[in-house]
């Protein structure tokens, strides 16, 4: 009998389980596709397309990506590593992080609305601040996820979101480009790394985990 070696403490096993959730590369591909979608939508707007024209395909892609992600998880991942559910009490911190990200988004929507009403005095680079908060939200969410779930590459995604924002702000300050490119930077730069890395992880996952044809003990 050859047993898998390793610590059996709850923290290690929990992190191991979380890593099983993310080590197939599908989350990277899914988030990468979503981020490319947001970046492309924003870039199209900056290049002169009417937001309404590009909104419908952008929303359509969101549904397609979600469907593809769920199907891939069900058909690729589960037959290979099995099905499991991390204890609900332990997923609370993930829900907390997601709630925080949602709260930031809601605040941003509120700020946008108030700015649209002209309630802020002129001279304040409100858009830059707003997109900066967006970058902070994206970066912070990835860092929090990396810390609590033990998925180290999320730190890189968070850092790239911040770098994308700073780079776009430098561009805005030194050239004629609009501040919409901040959003392209925040979402586009991490996506450039997420997509190829997701493909590499998926390839490695498929090589390391053959399909287990029967999940029953009596086969």
């Amino acid at each position: 009998m050859e047993m898998a070696a390793g610590a059996l403490d709850a923290r290690t096993l929990e992190r191991k389980a979380w890593n099983r959730v993310f080590n197939d590369g599908l989350w990277d591909l899914y988030l990468g596709a979503l981020f490319v979608n947001v970046a492309a939508w924003t870039a199209a707007g900056e290049l002169g397309s009417a937001w309404g024209e590009t909104a419908v395909p952008a929303m359509g892609f969101l549904i397609v990506f979600l469907g593809a992600f769920r199907a891939a998880k069900s058909r690729i991942t589960k037959p290979r590593i099995g099905h499991f559910q991390i204890e609900r009490a332990r997923t609370k911190k993930v829900h907390l992080a997601a709630s925080l990200a949602l709260a930031v988004t809601v605040i941003l929507v509120g700020v946008t609305f108030v700015a649209g009403m002209g309630a802020f005095p002129e001279g304040i680079p409100l858009v830059a601040i707003m997109f900066g908060v967006t970058a902070l939200g994206v970066s912070g969410s990835f860092s929090l996820a990396a810390y609590s779930l033990g998925v180290q590459r999320f730190y890189v995604y968070g850092a790239l979101a911040a770098v994308g924002y700073v780079g776009a702000e430098v561009l805005a300050a030194t050239s004629e480009v609009g501040r919409g490119w901040d959003i392209v930077g925040v979402f586009g730069l991490p996506a450039i790394v997420m997509l190829p890395l997701g493909l590499l992880l998926l390839r490695r996952f498929l090589q390391e985990h053959p399909v287990v044809t029967d999940s029953g003990p009596d086969a």
């Binding site: 191991k16 559910q85 991390i86 204890e87 003990p217």
Partner: peptide, 24 residues
């Protein structure tokens, strides 16, 4: 002990998952 420890952090797991994780 390994089976129980793995299940301790989960609500449930199927046979394939435990085979992979415990190496049994």
């Amino acid at each position: 002990l390994s089976i129980m420890a793995h299940l301790y952090v989960l609500d449930f797991a199927d046979f394939v998952y435990l085979m992979n994780e415990t190496g049994l």
